[in-house]
């Protein structure tokens, strides 16, 4: 050890860093444990909300359940913000046609909590969840009461899911889809699938593009959920462009190609796949 005491200081710093890191891991685990507990609570409460919260109309009941779930998501994100883990900032309004009406919302999929952040801000939307989530014992009830659906395991299930989603638009619900199908690679974009664009074309509704960025990156696909950065991650999600299927002659493939190119330009990516 030198007279300046540097090694001792370094050891202290290392210890502090480890303690701080362990603290953040504990916090993020507590956040997701709270999320699981909240899911259980919502699971218990939703049948009552369904029966008494939204009148007799099926869509009204679905909307009441969606509002309830959105409140739970807001609590979750409030806790994440309070603990300086992740600050989700979903800003702006969803642009619509002059006569209103539903839209298909698409977004690049930066973090594990994009969907909860978006649904907390815009409750009356339905979305597609992976079968592993949508068919879980607790999550199945929660998602189905709120009008969400499973993406299905195969082409047939995915096709039927898309058909039902286009019907949701007819019932006045917005539909949220991540066209990459899963979380984006860090700093990149996966190829878009066509489903969201086909649904929009069939229902003749605009597609609203949301741009999602997270700095520093957190809750990405290549990191364990508890592996948080050392400082608060700022997740920013906002509408930035609207595409109307009418401008593309109802051609879902042209719409898909245009949207994917627009996202690459907006995110500063080349046409070369980034994964």
């Amino acid at each position: 050890m030198s007279a300046t005491g540097r090694p001792a200081e370094s050891l202290a710093r290392r210890l502090m860093r480890r303690v701080r890191r362990a603290g953040r891991v504990a916090l993020v685990i507590s956040a997701f444990a709270g999320f699981a507990g909240g899911t259980l609570l919502v699971w218990l409460v939703l049948p009552l909300v369904w029966l008494y919260g939204g009148g007799r109309d099926h869509n009204g009941r679905t909307r009441a359940c969606q509002r309830m779930l959105a409140r739970a998501f807001r609590v979750f994100h409030g806790y994440m913000r309070m603990m300086a883990l992740l600050d989700a900032r979903v800003t702006g309004e969803i642009p619509r046609r002059a006569n209103g009406g539903p839209v298909v919302i698409i977004a690049n999929h930066t973090t594990l909590v994009d969907v909860t952040a978006i649904a907390a801000r815009f409750p009356n939307l339905t979305t597609i969840a992976k079968p592993g989530i949508a068919e879980g014992f607790f999550t199945r009830r929660v998602l189905s009461y709120c009008g969400h659906m499973s993406s299905g395991q195969d082409a047939i299930a995915r096709g039927l899911c898309a058909l039902r989603m286009s019907e949701r638009l007819g019932q006045g619900f917005d539909v949220l889809i991540f066209p990459e199908g899963t979380r984006s690679p860090r700093g990149g974009l996966r190829p878009f699938q066509r489903g969201a664009f086909e649904i929009a074309c069939r229902a003749d509704v605009p597609i609203v593009l949301l741009r999602s960025t997270c700095e520093p990156s957190a809750l990405t696909r290549d990191r364990a959920f508890w592996d948080q950065p050392d400082r608060v991650a700022i997740l920013t999600i906002a509408p930035w462009k609207v595409l109307d299927p009418r401008d593309f002659g109802g051609d879902s493939l042209a719409l898909q190609t245009h949207a994917e190119k627009a996202y690459k330009e907006a995110l500063g990516l080349s046409d070369t796949p980034a994964w």
Partner: peptide, 12 residues
């Protein structure tokens, strides 16, 4: 060799 979009069209 149909895909999910075909399933959507066909089911509809």
């Amino acid at each position: 060799g149909l895909d999910s979009i075909d399933a959507l069209e066909l089911a509809s």
